[in-house]
Write a protein that binds this DNA or RNA. Structure first.
Lengths: 204, 204
DNA sequence: TGTACATCAGTGAACGCGCGTTCACTGATGTAC
DNA sequence: TGTACATCAGTGAACGCGCGTTCACTGATGTAC
């Protein structure tokens, strides 16, 4: 399998992560194999064991990197709520969808691979950090409402997350019920607008 | 592997479907194997080939039966919109969640197994029938709004479907971000109420 | 600057495993007369 | 009602395959002096 110039790969660890992401994107979240990832990285099937404990460890690293990128994108999109929390929030929703489109392998590793976030402290931390971005954004947005009509930020974040995730799963991929006349992006936007109007954050 | 009394099983086809649903529920949507399903049904690994073309065919039949049951449950829950379309619609949301809880193997086969609904006419028909129930319900509900403020029924159905699916995926299972202080059922209900208020279907 | 040597990051062969699927077969059932 | 026979629904052994993982190994790199 030695297809490269040097005996040492140089950056095998990261190469394996990226090969895995591509592989998942192509083959589905559970059908990826360590052997195939090694093959694509141009090394023998034993080489990955220098960098990962095994198959699951590699998969978890893909998910972890995914959550880091995901959180950063959401944070960048929200941009502390400028110019206005509401538009920033909608922008963040779009960033959610963009991530799923541009990094499908990572998205699948994070949400569709069936891995448990609990067994890996770094993975758990990365996933919680991403979730925090959503909650903080909801918090800032909710502050625009009078306290007596202000919903819990975590609830709002979870609603929007669920809606976004549902749109990705049902309408971005070729899943049953898929192919709607309107694209996923418009679907998420219209849904979020109606929801936010229901919160009183958007007028009639 | 002959563990039963008679040489012929009697109802192997259905037994395999049910064994597969249990298996998926336990092992995840892609990790189920035809051999294990046969083992659980008490027959040799070659027996399923009398009833299914192969692994995928069996999986598709599980999904098809799932969609049939799913559609029937939604229809029954909506009950033509009695006593009022709104409460019937909320009841249908609860039925969505109930299905995911009570028939997880079928739910996973339908939405998480990565199968393509397009290649199987019966499966496609069953999935479209279930989707129709949602759309028809949204239609009936939307009729309560004046025509100039009436949203497309398909859009409303898709929003609610996405929200429900997202809640199931993120908060019903042990997925990242999971474990929220509030249960999936309350999460879906509060989200739907806010959304429907945004449509103008629920007053302040 | 050279050299001895420890460490690192690969190799490649091997293993045991369970899978999906095929095959010739056989026991049980249904049917024609 | 009995019987011959076609059909149906199983068996069990076999196959080729690719997987995850381990192992002793070796080539390349880094470091102490």
């Amino acid at each position: 399998m030695p297809d490269r110039k040097t005996y040492h790969h140089g950056n095998l660890r990261q190469a394996l992560v990226e090969a895995t992401a591509v592989l998942i994107q192509e083959t589905g979240p559970l059908a990826f194999t360590l052997s195939e990832a090694a093959r694509r990285a141009g090394v023998s099937p034993a080489a990955p064991y220098r960098h990962f404990k095994g198959r699951d460890d590699l998969l978890e690293e893909v998910a972890r990197q995914g959550f880091v990128d995901f959180g950063e994108r959401l944070e960048r999109a929200f941009d502390n709520g400028t110019p206005r929390p509401l538009t920033a929030f909608m922008r963040m929703g779009q960033a959610y969808l963009d991530f799923a489109v541009e990094r499908p392998g990572y998205y699948m590793a994070m949400f569709e691979s069936g891995l448990s976030v609990a067994g890996n402290a770094d993975l758990l931390a990365a996933s919680e950090r991403a979730q925090r971005v959503l909650i903080d954004a909801a918090e800032i947005m909710a502050k625009r409402l009078p306290p007596d009509r202000r919903p819990p930020a975590r609830m709002v974040a979870n609603h929007i997350w669920a809606l976004s995730h549902g749109v990705v799963e049902l309408f971005l991929r070729g899943k049953p019920g898929g192919r709607s006349p309107v694209g996923p992006s418009e679907m998420l936007e219209s849904g979020a607008i109606i929801y936010l109007r229901g919160l009183g954050l958007i007028g009639e």
